[in-house]
């Protein structure tokens, strides 16, 4: 599904967080959202996932403005995964994934056969089928994040929005998670801190700085030493590894 952000601004009690953002994510694309801490990545993602209403501007799913849509309607199109999300209650893995069926469920009834089949498929897709009856608290960080991805997939969304899902994961699990996301032909919008990871897995990058979009395009166009100096305040070297992936090495702060 094509997601379009038109002239979006968002302010909290007079303080502007996002300013005049125009961006889009086309169907089936994996788009990375990068930017330093406090640049407004999370806010933009929350606006796009319908969790915050923009002060002005519009968000369109395909051609329709989501302004005035109910949370349930939005949840039927877009799934949202927060960073390192924990819970006190000891849900089983299958129960967590079943939460993804919430926007489609009849309140009085339990899960239907269709729901269960979708949950099983989502568990299989992220490789958690064997852990389906395990309690949440017994899972490792990587397994938890995969469970959240499975929950998002169980929502059968037309687009998935993720806020730094690779935080707190070791290298192998970061790669696995990104592979999992890019292997689906989902429309994916993902905020990332690791620029090399973003360069390697994303079709396009959106670079956010102090609430405005300063660059957008393929990773090799967006990630230039000048821009990294201006936005991230680091002295960086952009190179290529032997596999042909773009790499970002840091010499120090700028």
């Amino acid at each position: 599904m094509r997601i379009t952000v038109e002239d979006l601004s968002w302010a909290v009690s007079g303080t502007g967080i996002l300013c005049d953002i125009d961006a889009n994510v086309t169907s089936g694309e994996t788009v990375g959202l990068i930017g330093p801490n406090g640049s407004g990545k999370s806010s933009l993602l929350r606006c796009i996932a319908g969790l915050r209403a923009p002060t002005s501007g519009a968000i369109r799913y395909e051609t329709s403005d989501i302004h005035g849509w109910s949370a349930r309607q939005i949840a039927q199109y877009v799934a949202f995964v927060e960073q390192a999300l924990d819970s006190d209650s000891d849900l089983r893995v299958a129960d967590v994934v079943a939460l993804g069926r919430t926007p489609f469920r009849d309140r009085w009834r339990g899960l239907s056969h269709t729901d269960r089949a979708i949950i099983d498929a989502a568990l299989a897709q992220v490789g958690l089928a064997d852990l389906r009856s395990r309690g949440w608290k017994t899972l490792s960080g990587g397994e938890r994040q995969r469970a959240h991805i499975a929950r998002a997939l169980a929502q059968q969304p037309w687009g998935i929005v993720l806020d730094e899902p690779t935080n707190h994961l070791d290298v192998r699990h970061q790669l696995e998670l990104m592979r999992l996301l890019t292997d689906t032909d989902q429309t994916v919008l993902i905020a990332l801190h690791d620029l090399s990871l973003a360069a390697r897995f994303c079709d396009r990058l959106l670079l956010l700085h102090r609430g405005t979009l300063v660059a957008t395009g393929p990773p090799e166009d967006v990630l230039t030493p000048d821009r990294l100096r201006d936005v991230f305040e680091v002295d960086a070297e952009i190179g290529q590894d032997s596999l042909g992936h773009l790499t970002v090495a840091y010499r120090g702060t700028a």
Partner: peptide, 24 residues
Amino acid sequence: WWYSAALDAFSFGADTAASLGINV
């Protein structure tokens, strides 16, 4: 009891509940 699915959705906080279609 009618809200039981919504209560489950709150397990991971208000934003996740909202993203699951709950009017928080």
